[in-house]
Design a binder for these strands. Structure first.
Lengths: 190, 190
DNA sequence: GCCCGGTCGTTCGGATACAAATTGTACGGG
DNA sequence: CCCGTACAATTTGTATCCGAACGACCGGGC
């Protein structure tokens, strides 16, 4: 509950603040609300459905991806779930220790690891997904079905734009200076 | 780049998988794409504009909030930025050490801390925000201005729904069993 | 004056995330 | 057959992040 400060109020202030500067206001509003909505929804779901099952959002997403796609190679699962391979390794291990996920070797390529749900995992998803979906309906209950579809479509186009043209864009932006290393993560070996 | 597996393909598979189960598909699509779009956009911005300035997404958002709202109490900043109070403490300290943010005591209430931008911080935002906004425009470039506004409005309604009714909802969901404590977090000193 | 419930910001334990480094496997050419 | 390159998952090091616990502070009641 944000008190007296509402979202729209913030946007009005932003516009006033940026009076002299040319700003793409519609695009700014779209991006700002996108991240805010995503984290808000994530927190609601983590604190309702997922808390009871003692699963994090990421773990649930991984489970969901494997459930929907069936047995899959880990790098595809990481890609679909939107996490790095290294993160997936840990999440998969946790889910395996809980008996929900199975890791098996690829029949012909020894480098690959395949992920699939155990029977318990399948049963878990059949039981928990409806509750999850119920909360998805709750958070979007101020939108009609058509508005939800329109929302999903618009978001899809944002994702596609970045996925298809983001890399080129980033390259051209810092052309040609060095990419400035990330702060976190393992240090280069001198 | 998602390879041969597109988002829409995943959704079709999900529908097939859920053949027998009643599912709110539009709502599912909206939520799924919401989180995916948010993280995709965040990564793009962190790896383009913010990387050069050595700022995380969260740090930039905090800076932006203080810039737009002017001098503010920390709990309001945390609320607006969508992060916890504890996280803000660390981020504010980092930004202060960089000379972009100033922390000052409230004139009458000794419990409060006020955040404001330094001159350097103001100058920084005037310089970096346009570049940030340019990328906001890039990621939404497959949408018209009107579609961006519609997208922002739909997302706002999702946020409002959760902020205004989420707490009641969560309470009624686990009524009346115990809220199942979080796994992480500080332990009682006993 | 002094407690005492309430409200701040801060501290800190645990979990999670990323990306570089590493380890292990596959495969084509000498 | 034994390399070297390519590519897989995993390990490792660092940085966040959340939220419960905590200590500082406020203001009302006695």
């Amino acid at each position: 509950m944000p008190g007296q400060r509402s979202i729209t109020e913030a946007e009005k202030l932003a516009e006033a603040k940026l009076g002299g500067i040319p700003v793409r206001r519609a695009q700014m509003a779209a991006v700002a609300n996108m991240y805010r909505a995503a984290t808000t929804v994530r927190h609601h779901l983590e604190n309702s459905v997922l808390r009871g099952s003692d699963l994090t959002w990421t773990a649930f997403v991984v489970l969901w991806v494997v459930w929907v796609w069936g047995e899959s190679e880990t790098r595809h699962v990481a890609e679909e779930a939107g996490i790095s391979k290294g993160t997936l390794t840990g999440v998969a291990r946790t889910l395996e220790s809980r008996g929900l996920l199975r890791r098996s070797a690829h029949p012909t390529d020894g480098r690959l690891v395949l992920l699939s749900l155990t029977d318990e995992g399948e049963e878990f998803m059949r039981r928990v997904f409806p509750a999850f979906n119920e909360e998805e309906a709750f958070v979007t209950s101020r939108l009609t079905d058509e508005e939800c579809l329109g929302l999903a479509d618009a978001l899809r186009r944002v994702v596609l734009q970045v996925e298809e043209e983001g890399e080129d864009r980033r390259r051209s932006l810092l052309d040609g200076q060095a990419p400035a290393p990330r702060r976190s993560g393992r240090r280069a070996q001198s």
